[in-house]
Amino acid sequence: MSEAVPIDFSYIIDEIRSGTLSQSNEVALKTEEFVERIIAEKDWKNAQELMNLIKAEIKLISEALPLHTISTNILRHVLNIIREEYDIGFKSHVEQSLHQMMTSDSDAMGDYSKMLDGLKTSIIDHLSEYKTELETSIDNIAAQATDHIYTNEIILTFGQSNTVEQFLKAASRTHSFQVIVAENAPSYNGHSMAVSLANHNIQTTVISDTAIFSVMSRVNKVIIGVHSVMANGALKTACGVHAVALAAKHYSVPVMVLTHLYKLSPTYVSSYSFDACSSPASVLPYSFAGDIVSRTNIINPMFDYVPPELVTLFITYQGGNAPSYIYRLLSELYHPDDHEL
């Protein structure tokens, strides 16, 4: 299946929906390959047409998978790459800022329809660099592990994250430390995380979500992965991480978030809930007193919002950043005109 990447993103959408493609890194790579195919094979004459093609895909994906931001973020970044290559080609520089407002001949701004030779090759070159970046992202993050974890520390993590797993395994090669994994009911993926860490000879303890505050007084660091990062540095994570962050704040334990750049979304969230819930059967089984279940409202939210003041550090492949710096990373990744698509 992976040999022939389809030119139609709907195949990838189906895979994501059915759960066969769930790891964020794989989704990122597949999306990137898909973009390469579009650029290589589809019919376009200038930058504007190409961007329109990609914008159409973004629209398609955000309608089909409203909660899924990785692919749309990567496509947005590709739009930025196209604009960059175009500008380099025409030696103009368009950047929305106070400076730009003052200095540009504004009418020339935003016109991408001039023909430019070699645009295709330069875009494809840039994309292959980007692909390498995506492939090595986890390893680069894991390579920073020894800077942050020392011997005999107790680290708390929540549920399952591939990035965090690699990070901890990398650190365990040189230091010995303990990991406490919160099981993350109702998906219980903390259990498989614990098994995976233990198979790597890391001393692991599994606790239920209720014990997070109790053990936090003994924890040295909290290391978590996220679903996506908002533009103000807030996090969209598995349900339950907000409680972890609050407990960490109370005991002054640093919270370190491992994230890839394609998880940074240029959106701001105006309310605390993401309006997404999953099946209540994982919370209260139907086998428990059917008549009680039918008279109760069972809540099982998918995501949690963690405000930026609870996060100490973001670790990306480039290094560590404070939450207040996220806006800068965003401005390098996406063009402001592409924020709302």
Binding site: S273, N297, N300
Partner: peptide, 11 residues
């Protein structure tokens, strides 16, 4: 009544 697990407490 409503019912949820402790991870949804913030929600």
């Amino acid at each position: 009544c409503s019912y949820c697990l402790i991870n949804s407490a913030t929600f």
